[in-house]
C-alpha cells in the first residue's frame, strides 16, 4: 500500500516541497551562523525576519518592485542587526535576553506597521518560479532542484559562499578566532568589536531576506506573526549544524523534508493523529542529532561579552 502512495511524481513533489520549505530557515540560519561563530547569540532572528517580511511586502504591495522589496528588507534587517550588535557588543548586554527583546520589538512593530500602513490581509505577485534553463529540463532532478523562484536559489547559493568565507578567507579566520579566543585575537590586532559588528549585521541582513523570502516569494502575503516562530527553529538548526554551513544545510533539509512528509502523510489519509504528525520533524531533528553523534564544541566565547581591559 505504501508503495502506491510513493509514486515517482509524489516523491518528486515531496522533495521539491522540502527544498522550498528550507529556504527561509537557510537564510536565517546561515546568517546566525556568522554571528555565533564570532561569539554572538542573536535570539532576535524571528523579530528581524518579521520586520524584513513586512518591509519587503510593503514595497511590493505599493510599487510591485520585487528587487526593491528585497533591498528594503535587507536594509531593515541590516539596521536591526546593527542595533543588536550595538546592544550586545558595545553595551555588552546579556545576549540571550537582548535577543528576546529584539524579537518582541519586531513581533509588535511589524504588526503595528502592517495595521497602520496596509490594514487588511492582501496578496501580492511575488517572485515567479524561474526554471533554470537546461538544468530544469533534466528529468526528476530538474523538477526537484531547478524549478523554483530566485530567492530559493539564492538560499542554496549562500551555503557554499558562507562555507568559503568561513573556511578559506582571512575574514573567516578572524571571525572564528574572535569566537574562540577573543583575547588572543585582540592581541594579534584583530578588532573583536569590528568583527562582531560585521557578523551580527550580516546575520540581521540575511534574516531580513529570510523574511522577504516568505512574504514576497513563497507565501506572497503578510499578516501578524507571519513567521510563527520560524526564526527560533532556524537558531536550533545552527546548533544542529554545529556552526558549519554545510551541516546547517543538512539540518534545514532534514527538518523540511520531514515536515513535507508529515503533511503528505496526512493528505493521503494515513490514520495518525494530526498532532503526532506535526510533532515528527521536531522529534526527528533531535533523534538524527543523537544518532549522528556529533561531538562539535560550540565557539568558546559564544554568548560571552568581550570587554577590553584598557
Amino acid at each position: 500500500m505504501l508503495a502506491d502512495l510513493f509514486t515517482g511524481s509524489v516523491l518528486i513533489g515531496l522533495l521539491a516541497s522540502g527544498i522550498r520549505l528550507a529556504t527561509p530557515y537557510l537564510y536565517a540560519a546561515i546568517g546566525e551562523t556568522f554571528g555565533q561563530r564570532s561569539g554572538v547569540l542573536n535570539l532576535g532572528v524571528d523579530g528581524i525576519m518579521l520586520m524584513g517580511a513586512f518591509s519587503a511586502f510593503y514595497v511590493v504591495f505599493k510599487t510591485g518592485d520585487l528587487v526593491g522589496g528585497v533591498l528594503l528588507a535587507m536594509l531593515v534587517g541590516l539596521l536591526m542587526g546593527l542595533a543588536m550588535a550595538f546592544i550586545s557588543v558595545t553595551l555588552n548586554a546579556e545576549q540571550g535576553i537582548s535577543g528576546i527583546g529584539v524579537y518582541l520589538f519586531g513581533l509588535g512593530m511589524s504588526d503595528l506597521l502592517f495595521q497602520k500602513l496596509i490594514n487588511n490581509v492582501q496578496t501580492v505577485s511575488g517572485f515567479p518560479v524561474a526554471p533554470i534553463p537546461f538544468l530544469s529540463d533534466i528529468p526528476i532532478v530538474g523538477q526537484i532542484f531547478f524549478t523554483h523562484n530566485v530567492l530559493v536559489y539564492g538560499a542554496y547559493l549562500l551555503v557554499p559562499i558562507a562555507w568559503f568565507v568561513l573556511n578559506k578567507t582571512t575574514l573567516g579566520l578572524k571571525i572564528k578566532a574572535v569566537g574562540e579566543n577573543p583575547e588572543a585575537a585582540d592581541t594579534l590586532g584583530v578588532s573583536v568589536a569590528k568583527i562582531r559588528y560585521l557578523t551580527v549585521t550580516i546575520g540581521g541582513l540575511l534574516s531580513g531576506v529570510a523574511g522577504a523570502s516568505l512574504s514576497i516569494a513563497l507565501l506572497n502575503v503578510f499578516q501578524f506573526n507571519l513567521t510563527n516562530g520560524l526564526g527560533f527553529i532556524a537558531i536550533a538548526l545552527v546548533y544542529f549544524g554545529g556552526w558549519r554551513p554545510t551541516w546547517v544545510l543538512m539540518g534545514s533539509l532534514i527538518f523540511s523534508f520531514v515536515n513535507a512528509l508529515q503533511i503528505w502523510v496526512q493528505v493521503v489519509g494515513i490514520p495518525i493523529p494530526s498532532d503526532i504528525a506535526v510533532m515528527t520533524p521536531y522529534i526527528l531533528t533531535i533523534v538524527v542529532l543523537v544518532i549522528s553523534a556529533q561531538r562539535v564544541r560550540p565557539p568558546s566565547a559564544l554568548t560571552k561579552a568581550y570587554e577590553r581591559l584598557e
Binding site: G101, L107, G108, D111, Q115
Partner: peptide, 12 residues
Amino acid sequence: ALITALNGLVVV
C-alpha cells in the same frame, strides 16, 4: 501590537 513592541523596548 504596540504593547508587544513596547515590552521589547523595555527588555532591550
